[in-house]
């Protein structure tokens, strides 16, 4: 067993874990933050995307011990209390989710795209940037719309209401 400490969603956390514990296991099993999901074994589906020190990473492909002293943000840490993050609100407004399983990873990826590429995102950029996130329900159509709107809203601090 090994000791690990990191900051998750602004809170200092520690754990005594087997070195083979992945970050996603630490989040889900030790911290009971089950919003971060596991959908594949090959680092491709993106259901487990979280932010580490401000950048999107796949929590299934990093050991919890590698996150020592890191700042980790999960889907549970995105909203400001009861108020949804603009990207979360945009996914709801534009029907960017169906079963909801890929959604946390999609939203964390989307916020990262905005952080890197800005608030004005064209369709091709969004589709290209979703290379590492699989959705089986939506055909991506509304996810792309939601991300474009969410990106704008992150710039304005509000979500465009008109979906139609």
């Amino acid at each position: 067993m090994a000791a690990v400490s990191m900051t998750v969603n602004g809170k200092a956390v520690t754990g005594d874990i087997e070195p083979r514990t992945l970050l996603v296991q630490f989040l889900r099993e030790n911290l009971r933050l089950t919003g971060t999901h596991v959908g594949c074994d090959t680092s491709q589906c993106g259901a487990c995307v979280v932010h580490m020190d401000g950048r999107a990473i796949k929590a299934c492909t990093i050991l919890a011990l590698q996150c020592e002293r890191a700042q980790v943000t999960t889907i549970e840490g995105l909203a400001n209390g009861a108020e949804l993050h603009p990207m979360q609100a945009a996914f709801r407004e534009h029907h960017g989710l169906q079963c909801g399983f890929c959604t946390p990873g999609m939203i964390m990826t989307a916020v990262d795209i905005v952080n890197r590429k800005g608030n004005s995102l064209d369709e091709h950029t969004i589709r290209n940037e979703l290379e590492g996130n699989l959705c089986r329900c939506t055909g991506y159509h509304n996810i792309v719309k939601a991300i474009a709107a969410g990106a704008q809203a992150m710039g304005h601090g509000l979500v465009a209401q008109a979906a139609e």
Binding site: T34, T36, I75, L84, G100
Partner: peptide
Amino acid sequence: ASVRRKEDQRFVTGRGHYVDDLT
């Protein structure tokens, strides 16, 4: 009416309960 989905609140905040989330 294209009503926005009631279920989305829990899904976009990571508060759904899928089987593997249960202990």
